[in-house]
Amino acid sequence: MSAAPESAGLAGSPPPGKSGMSDRWFSILLIAPAMLITLIFAILPLIQALDVTFRMGDLSRGKIGDYVGLTNYRIVFADNQFWQAGWVTLKFTVVAVGLEMILGVAIAFLLHGATFAKGITRSLLILPLATSAAVTGLFWRYLYDTQFGVLNWVLGLLGLPEPNWLGDYTIALWSVVLFDIWQWTPFVALIALAGLQALPKEPFEAAELDGASKWRVLTTLTFPLLKPVLFLVLVLRTIDCVRLYDAVAVLTRGGPGTATETMTFYLYRTGLKLFRMDYASTMAVFFLYVMLVAAVFALTPLLKQFTDRAKEA
């Protein structure tokens, strides 16, 4: 996008402008490609989806049909399975993100103090991140298998109970959580580790001189300083967990029964198995709405940080 002729940009805001474009136009030009793509490929499908929520839309019977008012919303809101899937998603997200954050930060501290074999440790830690859930999930299914899996074999050798990881409806969701923890804790750990290593040295040295306890340093210095980066990771992980699909699809397909059926998996089943695009779109629109409301709260502090810094200088 070299649309802006370079010669025209010789002057800008710091030195008073001669000819050329203003900062405002330059900045708009910079975001134009991103905006264009987002507008076309986010808004257009969204408008289509929104339109379908007011119509009859059984795709397997052919085309999108007549307008039916708010019927789809009534049906979706009265659908137990929809709320059930929402509840499963909530449980999954809270537990998975919570544990990933705790474990990730703990691992970061563990590695931060280590002096030996740092590079290789970090490299190995990245491994799960570099793989696809659609593929490694398959091998987790193999590990979890009660007849052939390594996991229960080891537990059996140790004389421990051998759970039916993916077949017991009371623990299947937690087995999926464990997989997600395996794949994404390294992400949290690596970013937290980077944050730890970037902390300024001076306040810590001052605290040490003052004889502050380790705990006090941790709660008054380390965590407050790490907060912004941890918050960013938290938001990212939350968004991904709420939209969880691949891991469920490959590990349990929502089963046993509907024990692990998350919102997106139920969406998939409604939209791509039953082809009720009207219900699926309605759920998606509602889902997006809830996410946006949550995002306004979650993102506002982050955005404020961005805009404050952008206004600096």
């Binding site: 986010a42 989806a49 939209r243 969406l267 889902f287 996410m291 995002a295």
Partner: peptide, 8 residues
């Protein structure tokens, strides 16, 4: 935040 399945 948009679920991919909704727009696929």
């Amino acid at each position: 935040m948009m679920p991919a399945i909704a727009v696929i």
